[in-house]
């Protein structure tokens, strides 16, 4: 299932958090060879993890991490504006209606539906919170994955060739795209909504509230 967890609440899901940071080390350092920092616990964490981001995480049946991504508002500090502004024509992308999505990670054992489930959850966030676009940094390997789940980003700028290609991309979500991703994920819109409500709360009618 998908969980939406702010950084300061990660401690309430210790196994999920621990395995997420381990899987990030495995993906970004071991497999991709990015120059990321891995601490003595084996966790890959960076300066943006201290900005209390909203993590969208696929939780396996045993409570461990299957895949995740990290969301931050672009009116605060973002990786795209701090480090990749040369790929956006020098434009600081900044708006309450645009969020940054980074550290898209899949564990080695992730089933094919996990990536699509994460994108579906990203769409849920957009729809519920009035987010119109995501910007994010991604690498060559992700191009194929995004394409497969029917959620290819628009490339704002890129550098490097072949496997070392890195790009700043832009996502928006139309209802059609959402339906396509839902199908690829094998998750009905109703189920996706239910997971969202588990994290962010359901609308409880006031009779229930006051009388409870």
């Amino acid at each position: 299932m998908i969980r939406y967890i702010y950084g300061n609440d990660l401690h309430t899901f210790p196994k999920l958090a621990r395995t997420m940071f381990l899987d990030r080390a495995d993906q970004f350092k071991t497999r991709l060879g990015w120059a990321v920092t891995v601490d003595d616990k084996g966790f890959e964490r960076d300066e943006y993890d201290t900005e209390n981001p909203l993590y969208v995480i696929w939780e396996n049946a045993d409570g461990s991490h299957g895949g995740s991504m990290r969301l931050l508002p672009t009116i605060g500090r973002t990786m795209v504006n701090d480090h990749f502004i040369h790929l956006t024509d020098g434009v600081r992308i900044e708006s309450p209606l645009i969020w940054e999505c980074t550290r898209f990670c899949l564990s080695r054992s992730a089933t094919p539906g996990v990536a699509a489930a994460l994108m579906l959850a990203g769409g849920e966030v957009m729809q519920e919170f009035g987010v119109e676009h995501y910007v994010g940094v991604f690498d060559a390997r992700m191009v194929r994955i995004y394409k497969r789940i029917g959620s290819s980003p628009e490339i704002l700028g890129q550098e490097g060739e072949g496997r070392s290609m890195i790009a700043v991309g832009l996502w928006e979500f139309t209802a059609e795209a959402q339906a396509k991703v839902s199908k690829a994920a094998g998750i009905s819109p109703e189920l996706s909504k239910r997971w969202f409500e588990r994290s962010f709360g359901d609308i409880i009618d006031e009779a229930g509230l006051v009388a409870a």
Partner: peptide, 23 residues
């Protein structure tokens, strides 16, 4: 410390003190 807009009805009002506050 969060950044998403919230409809109050989605919040957790289940504690006794929260309900008394709401009333």
């Amino acid at each position: 410390q969060r950044f998403h807009p919230v409809n109050w009805k989605r919040l957790d009002w289940s504690s006794k003190s929260a309900r008394a506050f709401l009333e």
